[in-house]
Design a protein around this nucleic acid. Structure first.
Length: 639
RNA sequence: GCGGGUGUAGCUCAGUUGGUUAGAGUAUCGGCCUGUCACGCCGAGGGUCGCGGGUUCGAGUCCCGUCACUCGCGCCA
């Protein structure tokens, strides 16, 4: 008989009744009835109930044993009485009567309880990650991760991609994120950098003629963390030769849609081949973000045209200084309390914005859209007959109150609305697609700021109102990123994203167009508001590369000095190529429905990039520092 | 670097307007219990209330500072 087990804790069922078996696992839970003791024995595969009665020598041993101790049980499989069957347990039809128990490892009192779904502070969980990982939810997440990676690999290989490893110890690169540095022992004063991504190497693999490469690649970035950002993470890094942007899309959409369909657990997935393509500028306008969550039905609109001479001072002056006004429709909220709108405004201020204005559309009972359209076209009197405002027909109000026609016909309430003539209000509602009873939030400022506030308000509004569609994964491509942007601080044009992307229009565009109008063959994949990947058709032409850098104010010497390896390679025969790199941790995070990337990493660093279990980063001995020619400046702290 | 939240028993949390000896659940220890599967019942131990300072007759509670964790902003092509 095997030293530890004849079966796993998930393997036994009715067909094993009568067998003599040996099981090993952790004491998941105990129920001690004095004369009879039940133990839930757990391993990776499942749970089997062990029974020890007063005849069993195992009873006194198991009785004293703490939870999470590891034991080997010798016993006999018995069928449970019908009333004792546990339908919630796959092995619930049987139990193992213990004849003997061997203690493999005694557990002391636990810092967190394995057999509970209770939430523990992350500090505790990470310090005792090996215990935390025994718990069902995290254990399943890590298994899911393994399956997702396996599936991604198979799907890539099936498409003819070859998996290669690229160096971990590389050269530091001047652009991009901060590098993790590794000092060199053999070369005093010099440093390796851990890769932020295998960018250079995958392009060189294309130059080397390998045509289709991929890698489950570890990446490192020494920047501050977020819930969806870890300093070390994995990407499905891939690159292809002789391809257009369209070819890259067609290669990766089936992989992502496929793996999401495989593991989504029934949630709907945007089908491969139908990922919407949203130009960057459109995304910034309609969603206030370059990673829009398309589960959110709200669409932002630009309403700058309604202000400037409206008499609403703040907005008018923002517009006159070149700013913009963005409107965020909030469905069915016009009857919400003042508090709702005030709290949105307070929230915007807390987020560092000037504030968030609002207006409410009256709860008209008439066909407001049709009326608004007619009104706007000077055809109002004709349709007033059908219009009811706040329960009173519009014509009657005009007659009864002798009211000013404009005030009666106003569609919008609130401090901003007072400054817009009814015809303007109608146009505005029409533009936003608002219905009676909706409200509108206004975000004003410089274009970048207003878009950002509008985007944040769009998300918050939908979350508060419960408008985010559930049980779906909505993918899209963000395309047509601008090649350059104006850097306010440096007062010059600079690359807006990756300097190695091919500009759309290539050399001709660089020579003839306003740099701020040039688009790049660069694209992101976004799913449910998370940026899953970033990619591009690369610039493989030295002449275009020098020109692209020249536009941003860099000399040929600058390029040669910083990127000589790549440039030299491109001078010796480089195929047109492009690729992308979906983030694996974020994919698993979405599939596991976890709000935090650390939930899908077996041993994650905490929010301050520390390993609380192993104590990284740690101090090293003076000898080690001497070896790598490092002298620290600040007095080391204890710990 | 900046802003929000949290910090009370091993663990999860409660703690009122500043007022007696800081509570509960769970875990641990002891006792009882032969059919539980969140077993049940009885009892016990367990606290620098994150840390430092201040106000007060009196501070877990109010004020100032500070630390840790976390979420967001900056940052992350």
């Amino acid at each position: 008989m095997h030293a530890y087990r004849t079966h796993t804790c998930a393997a036994l069922n009715q067909s094993a009744v009568g067998q003599s078996v040996r099981l090993s696992g952790w004491v998941h839970n105990k129920r001690d009835h004095g004369g009879v003791l039940f133990v839930d024995l757990r391993d990776h595969y499942g749970i089997t109930q062990i029974v020890a009665d007063s005849d069993s020598p195992a009873l006194p041993v198991l009785e004293k044993l703490k939870l999470e101790s590891v034991v080997t049980i010798d016993g006999d499989v018995k069928a449970r009485a019908p009333e004792a069957v546990n339908p919630n347990l796959p092995t619930g039809g049987i139990e193992v009567f213990a004849r003997e128990v061997t203690i493999q490892s005694r557990a002391e009192e636990l810092p967190l309880i394995v057999n509970s779904a209770e939430d523990y502070p992350e500090e505790t969980r990470l310090k005792y990650r090996f215990v935390d990982l025994r718990r069902e939810r995290v254990h399943n997440n890590i298994i899911l991760r393994s399956k997702v990676i396996s599936s991604l690999r198979q799907r890539m290989i099936a498409q003819g991609f070859n998996e290669f490893q690229t160096p971990i110890l590389g050269a530091s690169s001047p652009e991009g994120a901060r590098d993790y540095l590794v000092p060199s022992r053999l070369h005093p004063g010099r440093f390796y950098a851990l890769p932020q991504a295998p960018q250079m190497f995958k392009q060189l693999l294309m130059v080397a003629g390998f045509d289709r490469y991929f890698q489950i690649a570890p990446c490192f970035r020494d920047e501050d963390l977020r819930a969806d950002r870890s300093p070390e993470f994995y990407q499905l890094d891939f690159e292809m030769s002789f391809v257009t942007q369209e070819d890259v899309f067609q290669a990766i959409e089936p992989v992502l849609a496929g793996v999401f369909e495989e593991f989504s657990g029934g949630k709907t997935v945007t089908p491969a081949g139908t990922f919407p393509r949203i130009p960057y500028r459109e995304a910034m306008l309609k969603y206030g973000s370059d990673k829009p969550d398309l589960r959110n039905p709200i669409e932002i609109a630009d309403v700058t045209e309604f202000f400037g001479n409206s008499g609403f001072g703040i907005f008018d002056s923002i517009v006159s200084r070149g700013g913009v006004i963005r409107a965020i429709p909030a469905p069915n909220t016009s009857e919400m309390s003042r508090k709702f709108f005030d709290e949105m405004n307070d929230w915007a201020k807390r987020e560092g914005f000037a504030g968030l204005g609002y207006a409410n559309a009256r709860g008209n009972q008439g066909p407001i859209e049709e009326f608004a359209f007619n009104f706007w076209n000077g055809d109002a009197d004709q349709s007033i007959s059908g219009l009811v405002i706040d329960g009173v027909p519009a014509q009657q109000r005009i007659a009864d109150e002798g009211a000013n026609k404009d005030s009666v016909l106003g569609f919008l309430k609130g401090p901003i609305a007072r400054h817009l003539a009814p015809a303007e209000q109608a146009k505005l509602l029409k533009k936003l697609g608002c219905k009676p009873g909706d409200s509108i939030f206004f975000a004003a400022g410089k274009e970048k700021d207003a878009a950002k506030l509008a985007g944040a308000a769009r998300t918050r509004t939908a979350e508060i109102l419960g408008l985010i569609e559930e049980n779906c994964f909505k993918f899209c491509w963000i395309v047509d990123f601008p090649m350059y942007e104006y850097d306010e601080d440096a007062k010059k044009v600079d690359f807006s994203h990756n300097p190695f992307s091919m500009p759309q229009g290539e050399m001709e565009a660089l020579e003839t167009q306003d740099p701020l109008d040039i688009l790049a063959w660069q694209y992101d994949i976004v799913c449910n508001g998370y940026e899953l990947s970033s990619g591009a058709i690369r610039n493989h032409r030295p002449d275009i590369m020098y020109k692209a850098f020249e536009v941003a104010g860099y000399t040929k010497a600058d390029v040669d000095e910083n990127f000589s390896g790549m440039i030299e390679a491109f001078k010796l025969g480089a195929p047109p190529h492009g690729g992308s790199a979906p983030g694996i941790d974020r994919i698993v995070m979405l599939l596991a429905d976890e709000p935090n990337i650390r939930e899908v990493i077996a041993f994650p660093l905490n929010q301050r990039a520390q390993d609380l279990m192993m104590g990284a980063p740690s101090q090293v001995s003076p000898r080690q520092l001497r070896d790598v020619h490092i002298r620290t400046v600040e007095a080391p702290k204890e710990g």
